[in-house]
Amino acid sequence: MRQVFIALACGAHSHPAGSLVQFAEVPWKDDWFTEKLDKKLMKTIITSGRHGGFDAASIGLKGGFEVHFVPHRGFRDEETSEENLLDRLASEIATTGRITFGDRTAVPMRESHVDVLVYNVGIHGTLDMLATMLRQFVDQISLPLSSLATASEGDMGRTKTVYVTTPTQHYNTSDGQWQWHNMTQPPSKHCLARVANNPRSDLEMSILKPVGLSQGGNVDAVVEYGDLDLGSMHMRHTDCSHYCLPGVPDVVAARLLQTILAVMG
C-alpha cells in the first residue's frame, strides 16, 4: 500500500490539468528498516536515497480531499505506527459510530470524519493470520459501518469501506509464495514470469463480498491487483513481492481512485 499511496500522489501531482496536490507531508527515512539477525535488529538494509521508507504520510488535494497513510503491519516504526489499528477502529465505532485515522497521521486531519476507509492486511504473516485479520475487519469494521443509519452521521453519510487485495508473489515455489523454511530456490533467483493463482487474494475474495454484487455484502468495494502474469516485470527480475515494481501499483492506484469516487457518489 505504500507503493499505491506513492502512485496515487504522483498521479495527482502530474494531472493533465495541473497538480491537484495542495499539501504533502511524507517523512522519508534516511535509514529504513533493519533485518533480524540472531533475533536482534542488526543491519540497516537501506541507508540512503528516497525510497518506500516512511511510516505515516499525508497529502491534501484541491477540493478538500485528503489521503492519509497509516500502516499497522510490515516494516514500521513502533513510535509512529499503530500495532492494534483494527482494535482502535472497532472501539471508535462502538463509542462514537464513526472512525478517524487516529493521531499517527503525518499531518492532523482537518475533520474527524472519514469518508472512505481503504484497507489491506499485507503479505506479512501466514494465511491463518490473514484470515483472522480479514474476519476482524469484516465483523468489527466494515459490517458495523455499513449498518449505521445515514441519519446518525448527519449530512456526512457513513464511512464507506474499500479493500485492496494482496499483490501476487512470484517466487519459485509450489504456489508462488515466499516459504520461510522451505524455499526451493535462493531469494535472489529470478522471479517466475507467471503463477497459476494467488492464495492470499483467493482467500480474501472468499471472505469479502462487495455490496451490490451479492446479497449479504460485507464491504463496499474490492480493488484487485490482477497481476498473476506480471512476474517478469519485476525490478531486475528479483523483486518477487512487488516491493519496487513500477507499473502495477500505478494501475492499482488508478483503479482505487475510480473506486473511491464511485462509492462516494
Rank of each mutant, 00 (worst) to 15 (best):
R73K: 11
G176A: 01
S91K: 10
T150V: 08
I99E: 07
G63Y: 00
A17C: 10
R200T: 05
P144I: 06
W180M: 12
D175I: 04
P249Q: 02
K29Y: 03
R76C: 12
C244Y: 14
Q22N: 09
P187A: 07
I123V: 10
A56Y: 01
H113N: 10
A94Y: 03
H237R: 14
Q185M: 13
N182P: 00
T184Q: 14
D103L: 09
H113Y: 07
P187K: 03
P199H: 05
S48C: 09
R104C: 10
K39Y: 12
D250R: 00
T173K: 01
H68M: 04
V4N: 13
A7M: 03
L134K: 01
L208T: 04
L85T: 04
R104G: 08
S152I: 05
P71M: 01
D227C: 08
W180Y: 11
M205Q: 11
L134V: 01
V252C: 11
A196G: 13
S147Q: 14
Y171V: 04
G102D: 10
I207D: 10
S146R: 12
H190R: 03
N198V: 11
G11W: 00
R236C: 09
T159C: 10
G97I: 00
D103M: 06
S81R: 00
G217M: 04
A90S: 12
T165A: 05
A7C: 11
V4P: 11
R2K: 11
R98Y: 09
M233T: 15
C240S: 06
H51E: 14
T80L: 11
Q3L: 06
L61A: 09
E78S: 14
D175L: 05
R104Q: 10
M129R: 07
D30P: 08
Q215P: 04
A12F: 04
A196D: 15
A57W: 02
P144V: 06
L230Q: 10
A193S: 15
V21K: 05
Y171E: 05
I207K: 08
V21C: 07
Q185L: 06
V248F: 01
I99D: 03
V251Y: 09
Q177Y: 01
D38F: 06
S58T: 12
G157S: 05
N120Y: 02
W180S: 15
R76V: 13
Q258L: 10
Y243N: 11
Q258H: 13
T173I: 08
D103S: 15
V195M: 02
Q140E: 14
A151H: 05
G212D: 02
K36W: 07
E79L: 06
R255Y: 05
T95W: 04
L61Q: 07
M235S: 10
K43D: 13
G217D: 02
A262G: 13
H170I: 04
S91F: 14
T126P: 14
I141L: 03
P144E: 03
A57H: 05
W178N: 09
A24D: 09
P27N: 08
H124R: 09
C240H: 04
L134I: 01
N197K: 03
S58M: 02
S142Y: 02
L208P: 08
K209C: 00
T166L: 06
L257K: 11
G63M: 02
K40V: 14
G49T: 01
D239K: 01
A106L: 02
G125C: 00
Q3P: 08
W32V: 08
I99T: 05
D239Q: 06
T259F: 07
